[in-house]
Design a protein around this nucleic acid. Structure first.
Length: 877
RNA sequence: GGGAGCUUAGCUCAGCUGGUUCAGAGCACCUGCCUUACAAGCAGGGGGUCAAUGGUUCGAAUCCAUUAGUUCCCA
């Protein structure tokens, strides 16, 4: 057979992926089997694959492929998220580049552009996932804004509204003046930035004195409605009942007293701007202060500011400082570091702003979701995130679900003509009916109603994802939903534990009244070698597709998994996929070796091959048991390493080397077919991690396989094995290593046959002597009573081994080696005896531990005897 | 400021109920090999006061406390 010496992933990956699709191996329908369900965390519809996706989707694919091999009806539902803010921002930017301003377009016109953009760029990421080998059921691909998903969102909104859980209210929100929308707390990133602290003089009314107030935002002085001090602050007791004059606008405002003020900060005297600071807002409510909103939605100053109207807030700050300086109202300016919140999407400085928003009451909704994680119905991996989850759920605030955008699910609230009253309904017709009933005015038409301009937060659609992908909101009784829900494993990043995971659990208990999934596997964050998060702005993220091209999808998958324990960050380096690629090459070459053997029916199976088969069979079965445990506890990195070592160390370095016939000699039939069978079974274990190369090999194994594709093959059974054989083989490997070490130390050529002489003490296990003979390249193994002259030796488990090496022996060196070992062993024995003569230890330690210590003592004592004898023997020579 | 976690070999990490899995793995490193499956390889080897201190215990990487460094979440 002609198989190239280097494995070339690029040549086969595309072929097998197409083959899997044609055969519809990834598609499932409900049947009598147990389902295994995984829904993809929907990537942004216009996004491109980054390293985080690679990690996340590799893990999902490994889980899904193994479940499929376990005989479950495994389905992985793919899809994309409309991602309101991110997508709208991209469309706005694209239009801007074409000279079109969003504000010049109607809502309908803008949405037309947005949909065009989605059609053009949407789903690229899904095509990229195919390159990775993701075994998604593509027929089930969903989009959070397709018909079923949109209708589900609207249905849920109206339902929650009718339950009294959705309300409209004025709230302080995080306003993004660039995107002109409110963003959630979670979407604001706070960082330390250099700014300035301005000490401004406020004149006390009817007095010729001032209070000094430190502020980082002098432009907001225009919105001040009070000055506040701590009631315990003795410096300001004289201000009781006084009023001060706000600079620039000369507004007279009261001095109020509130515990909130930190006496240590600044001058201990705080200006209160209820419209533009969350704490001021709360103080404002407590003290019944008016609130003056001085900003427009785009961050420029409004008419209410009186000064600098129309100027940008940062421009206004400069102007305000100049104005204050002109009036000699600035006492000093200090450099100051403070935390500035910026929008995750636009990087614009967040403006706290009072605005009318829609909210979902969370207090009661979270209760079953909190309980589910506490009682283990939903299992979070790693468990440390349970604490974080609990903390958030116990301190949950109402969810601001409206966004001032166009791309998304428009809020189904319809305002009555000339009024702020509204009805909430699933569509215009229903809204009209409700409006007529509400007003008693039957002449109303659809045109009289005005739908709310806002859309819903993106998470308000993705929180339904595990339900809505099976149409479980609109048709909760449908057969698919009943079969597939609840799903099994959710794999996602810890950063969206709250935005998404927690809310899905909430929705699960509110709608189908059942958990959305049983396990949440939180991956780490992919970082670069310096520990920095991979990001576009740092330009430190490799393009996943380049990596796949360079190392093969299998290589990249292995690379991602090798270093990613659940919840631990992954410090990415090119050496990782390289290791994966090397592994693929190793597998490839092992296969080449086996497939190129000539078989001779007439030769009997050599003894060394017979025991090797017996041993590897035991080792394989033992490893499958271990592997299953690792999978079941989501220790995927460890599982991969287990398979890696089984193939590389046990199978390639030991088993194949034992059974390998001499150059250009044929192999016996029994060993050949046994080896191919091992290869087949090893491929099965490797295939969830490396689906492409294992499929390629599978196709070469036409005679051995029972199904056409490895995708649908059965995961090997684990049977109980003789661990005795495995430990016996370990001794054999130590003996071989001992021989090899002597060969290397004495510079004995590999081709020169040596003889091994053994002084046996007690029972000598000879089961693997044929193996020792072959791999040690020995001409024979003899048992002797005394140490042969001019020989180098070693001890394994109180058996003495010697290799006669003629004059190459350096007596002094050998004696030194033995003496070193003697010193060590005597020290060891001393510590064991100390333990055993400690009465408290003997009385308290479990018998198993005691037994072990006694065995240690016996072993050490016999070893010391041997060493002493050898040393005196050497010296006597 | 409040909360949670982490610190084990040069790097990334295991170490699950305190005791033969107790100091481990992979990579990297060093030495010798182009031994006809694989140099993307083979064989051999070195390397750690388990962050520090104190405590509990017959026994601590493992449990407790304090400290230092670090990461994340919330404000």
């Amino acid at each position: 057979m002609d198989i190239p010496a280097k494995y070339e992933a690029a040549k086969i990956e595309e072929k097998w992926y197409q083959y899997w699709l044609e055969k519809k191996y990834f598609h499932t329908e409900p049947d009598s089997r147990e389902p295994y369900v995984n829904v993809i965390p929907p990537p942004n519809v216009t996004g491109v694959l980054h390293m985080g996706h690679m990690l996340n989707n590799t893990i999902q694919d490994v889980l899904v492929r193994r479940a499929r091999m376990l005989g479950k009806n495994a389905v992985w539902v793919p899809g994309t998220d409309h991602a309101s803010i991110a997508t709208e921002a991209k469309v706005v930017a694209k239009l801007k580049a074409e000279g079109i301003d969003k504000s010049s377009l109607s809502r309908e016109e803008f949405l037309k552009h947005a949909w065009e953009w989605k059609e053009k760029h949407g789903g690229i990421i899904l095509e990229q996932l195919k390159k990775l080998g993701a075994s998604c059921d593509w027929n089930r691909t969903c989009f959070t804004m397709d018909e079923i998903r949109s209708d589900s969102v609207i249905r849920v909104f109206t339902d929650l509204y009718e339950k009294g859980l959705i309300y409209r209210g004025v709230r302080m929100v995080n306003w993004d003046p660039d995107a002109k929308t409110a963003v959630s707390d979670e979407e604001v990133i706070y960082t330390e930035e250099n700014s300035k602290l301005y000490y401004v003089k406020y004149k006390i009314e009817n007095e010729n004195s001032y209070v000094i107030i430190a502020t980082t935002r002098p432009e907001t002085i225009l919105g001040d409605t009070a000055v506040c001090v701590n009631p315990n602050d003795k410096r300001f007791t004289h201000l009781k009942g006084k009023k001060v004059i706000v600079p620039m606008v000369n507004r007279v405002v009261p001095v109020i007293f509130d515990d909130y003020v930190d006496m240590e900060f600044g001058t201990g005297c705080l200006k209160i701007t209820p419209a533009h600071d969350i704490n001021d807002y709360e103080i404002g409510i407590r003290h019944n202060l008016p609130s003056i909103d001085i900003f427009n939605d785009n961050g420029t100053l409004s008419e209410a500011a009186e000064l600098f109207v129309g100027k940008d807030r940062f421009e206004a700050r400069k102007l305000a400082v100049a104005e204050l300086e002109k009036a000699a109202l600035i006492e000093k300016i200090e450099a100051y570091n403070n935390k500035i919140g910026r929008s995750e999407r636009t990087n614009s400085v967040i403006e706290p702003k009072l605005s009318m928003q829609w909210f979902l009451k969370m207090e009661n909704l979270v209760k079953p979701a909190l309980a589910a994680v506490e009682n283990g119905d939903v299992n979070i991996i790693p468990a440390k995130y349970k604490n974080t989850y609990r903390h958030w759920m116990e301190n949950v605030r109402d969810w601001c679900i409206s966004r001032q955008l166009w791309w998304g699910h428009r809020i189904p609230a319809y305002y009555l003509p000339g009024s702020n009253e509204f009805v909430v309904a699933g569509n215009e017709e229903q809204a009209l009916e409700k409006a007529k009933k509400h007003t008693g005015n039957n002449s109303l038409t659809i045109k009289d109603l005005r739908q709310d301009e806002d859309v819903l937060d993106t998470w308000f659609s993705s929180w339904l994802w595990p339900i809505s992908v099976f149409d479980g909101i609109l048709n909760p009784e449908n057969a698919e939903f009943k079969y597939y829900y609840p799903t099994n494993d959710l794999v996602t990043a810890p950063e969206i534990l709250f935005f998404w995971v927690a809310r899905m659990i909430i929705a699960g208990y509110e709608y189908p009244k059942n958990k959305p999934f049983s396990n949440v596997y939180l991956t780490g964050i992919v970082r670069d070698k310096q520990g920095r998060k991979m990001s576009k702005s740092l330009n430190n993220s490799p393009d996943p597709l380049d990596l796949i091209e360079k190392y093969g999808a299998d290589g990249v998958r292995v690379g991602m998994l090798l270093c990613s324990p659940a919840g631990g960050d992954l410090l990415y380096d090119d050496s990782l996929p390289e290791q994966g690629r090397n592994f693929a090459n190793k597998i490839w070459n092992a296969f080449r070796l086996v497939k190129n053997w000539d078989i001779d029916d007439s030769i009997p199976q050599p003894e060394h091959s017979r025991v090797a088969v017996e041993w590897f069979d035991a080792k394989f079965n033992q490893t499958v048991t271990q592997l299953n445990q690792q999978f079941d506890s989501f220790r995927l990195s460890e599982a991969l390493m287990t398979v890696y070592k089984l193939f590389w160390d046990d199978f390639s370095a030991w088993y194949l080397e034992i059974v390998k016939p001499e150059y250009q000699k044929p192999i016996d039939k029994i060993t050949y077919y046994k080896t191919l069978d091992f290869f087949k079974k090893l491929s099965l274990l490797i295939s969830p991690f490396m689906p492409f190369i294992t499929e390629e090999l599978w196709q070469f194994m036409k005679e051995e396989r029972d199904v056409e594709s490895i995708v649908t093959a059965k995961w090997p059974e684990s049977v109980n094995t003789k661990s005795d054989l495995i430990s016996s083989f370990e001794i054999c490997t130590e003996v071989i290593a001992g021989i090899r070490t002597i060969r290397q130390e004495k510079n004995l050529p590999l081709k020169e046959k040596l003889s091994l002489q053994i002084i046996a003490h007690g029972f000598y296990d000879n089961r693997f002597d044929s193996v020792i003979k072959k791999l040690g390249n020995l001409e024979g193994i003899d048992f002797v009573k005394e140490k042969p002259v001019l020989s180098a030796g070693f001890i394994v488990k109180s058996q003495e081994y010697f290799i006669p090496v003629g004059n190459l022996i350096n007596k002094d060196e050998e004696v030194k080696k033995l003496e070193d070992e003697l010193v060590y062993t005597e020290g060891f024995l001393k510590s064991v005896i100390a333990k055993l003569s400690n009465e408290k230890f003997v009385n308290n330690a479990p018998s198993k531990v005691l037994e072990n210590e006694r065995k240690k003592q016996a072993d050490a004592e016999s070893k010391i005897a041997i060493l002493k004898e050898q040393i005196s023997g050497m010296k006597g020579q």
